[in-house]
C-alpha cells in the first residue's frame, strides 16, 4: 500500500536574489513497511527532501500525499497532527528536549500523540534500545550513541506510519553507528514502519529494501 507519494516535487532557495533549484521534479513512492535508503552527495538536497516530506517546508511545485492528505494544502494544525501521530522524525543532531529526562522525552511524544504510555511500555521500549538504566537521566549526560537511541525511541514510541531519518548516525563513530542502525532497523521492522533514511553509509544497503540516489536535484533508484 502506498503510504506516501510525491509528484513533480521541486524546491529551490533564493541566493542573492536568484532562485537556486535544489530539487527538480522529484517523483517518489513509499510503501507501507519498506525501508528505503536515500543516498547523495552533501548539499544535494537530501535534508530538503525529508523536510518537504515531513511538511516542515512547502514545495515550490508538485504535491505530496501522505495517505490521503495533500501536504501543500494541509493547515499547520493538520501537519502538526500528522507529525504527532503518523509521522516521526529522527535528526542527525539528536534534538532531544534537554530539560526532560530520557523517559520524559518519550512521554512527551506519547502525550502529544494523545497516547497513554505507562511505565511498563516505557521500560519495554527503553530495554529494546538498551536504555533501561538511563530513564531518569538528562540528555547531556548521555553519550552520542545513547542520545541517538533516545531519539529513535522517541520516534518509535508513538508507532508512526512513517519515520524520516536524516543521517541519524552521522555524528557517531563507526561502531556506535553500526550498533544504533542495527537496533533502529530492527525496531522499524518490528513495528512495520516505513523508513526513509538519508545516509552516506553504503554498508546499510544490506538492511534496506530500496536505495535511492539524489544527485543534482534528481532522484533515481540506485
Amino acid at each position: 500500500m502506498t503510504l506516501l507519494k510525491a509528484e513533480q516535487l521541486s524546491k529551490g532557495y533564493h541566493q542573492h536574489g536568484v532562485l537556486q533549484p535544489v530539487l527538480s521534479s522529484i517523483e517518489l513512492d513509499l510503501q507501507q513497511g519498506e525501508i528505503v535508503l536515500l543516498f547523495g552527495p552533501s548539499g544535494e538536497g537530501k535534508s530538503t527532501l525529508l523536510h518537504l516530506l515531513a511538511g516542515l517546508i512547502r514545495p515550490d511545485k508538485g504535491e505530496i500525499w501522505f495517505e490521503n492528505l495533500a501536504l501543500s494544502r494541509a493547515s499547520e494544525q493538520q501537519l502538526c497532527q500528522l507529525r504527532r501521530q503518523r509521522l516521526a522524525l529522527v535528526f542527525q543532531f539528536f534534538n532531544l528536549i534537554p530539560t526532560l529526562t530520557v523517559a520524559e522525552n518519550l512521554q512527551l511524544s506519547a502525550s502529544l500523540a494523545q497516547q497513554q504510555l505507562n511505565s511498563h511500555g516505557l521500560v519495554k521500549i527503553l530495554k529494546q534500545l538498551g536504555l533501561a538504566a538511563k530513564a531518569a537521566v538528562f540528555p547531556q549526560r548521555l553519550s552520542g550513541g545513547e542520545q541517538q537511541r533516545v531519539a529513535i525511541a522517541r520516534a518509535l514510541v508513538t508507532q508512526p506510519r512513517l519515520i524520516l531519518a536524516d543521517e541519524p548516525t552521522g555524528n557517531l563513530d563507526r561502531d556506535n553507528a553500526e550498533r544504533v542502525m542495527t537496533l533502529f532497523i530492527e525496531q522499524v521492522r518490528k513495528q512495520n514502519c516505513t523508513l526513509l533514511l538519508a545516509t552516506h553509509d553504503p554498508t546499510l544497503k544490506g538492511m534496506a529494501d530500496r536505495c535511492l540516489m539524489l544527485e543534482q536535484g534528481v532522484l533515481y533508484e540506485r
Binding site: 515531513a54 516542515l56 499547520e76 494544525q77 502538526c80 497532527q81 500528522l82 507529525r83 504527532r84 501521530q85 522524525l89 535528526f91 534534538n95 528536549i97 512527551l108 511524544s109 502529544l112 500523540a113
Partner: peptide, 13 residues
C-alpha cells in the same frame, strides 16, 4: 532551532 524541533514533534504554534 529548538522551535523547529518542536514543530517536528508536532507542537502547534
Amino acid at each position: 532551532t529548538e522551535s523547529q524541533r518542536y514543530r517536528a514533534l508536532g507542537m502547534s504554534p
